[in-house]
């Protein structure tokens, strides 16, 4: 007999599988966006770097929220991890672009 708890576990498994697929797809997308070694001699365009940063931020947030289960955690932990993510990626992007 399938209970509501069984259905919850199945839902949890499906969620982590979808998150893994999204993370892998984002990684491959970032790879496809980045030009090959010999294609450009200069640094990447601003739009491309911004896209890499946004993809990186989304990937980190997916790991924190779904794999590390921070989506059900107390608000202080959500605020701390979100703060770390935004400050880190924004600082990296600004330093790269300036």
């Amino acid at each position: 007999m399938t209970t509501s708890t069984d259905r919850d576990f199945t839902k949890d498994k499906r969620t982590v599988l979808i998150v893994w697929a999204a993370l892998s797809a984002a990684t491959i997308l970032a790879w496809l966006l980045t030009p090959g070694e010999s294609q450009t001699a200069t640094t990447l365009g601003k739009e491309l770097v911004a896209a890499i940063v946004v993809l990186g931020l989304i990937k980190c947030r997916l790991i924190i929220h779904y794999f590390m289960e921070v989506r059900h955690a107390p608000r202080w932990l959500q605020a701390t991890t979100d703060g770390w993510l935004v400050v880190l990626w924004l600082t990296l992007l600004i330093i790269y672009l300036v």
């Binding site: 970032a30 980045t34 990447l44 770097v49 890499i52 940063v53 990186g56 980190c60 790991i63 590390m68």
Partner: peptide, 22 residues
């Protein structure tokens, strides 16, 4: 497992930083 996910999380940043943002 939490510690393991942190390793994954840090690698995602290292990968973008060293391999992609060039």
């Amino acid at each position: 497992v939490l510690f393991w996910h942190m390793i994954d999380l840090l690698w995602v940043v290292i990968f973008a930083l060293l391999y992609l943002m060039r």
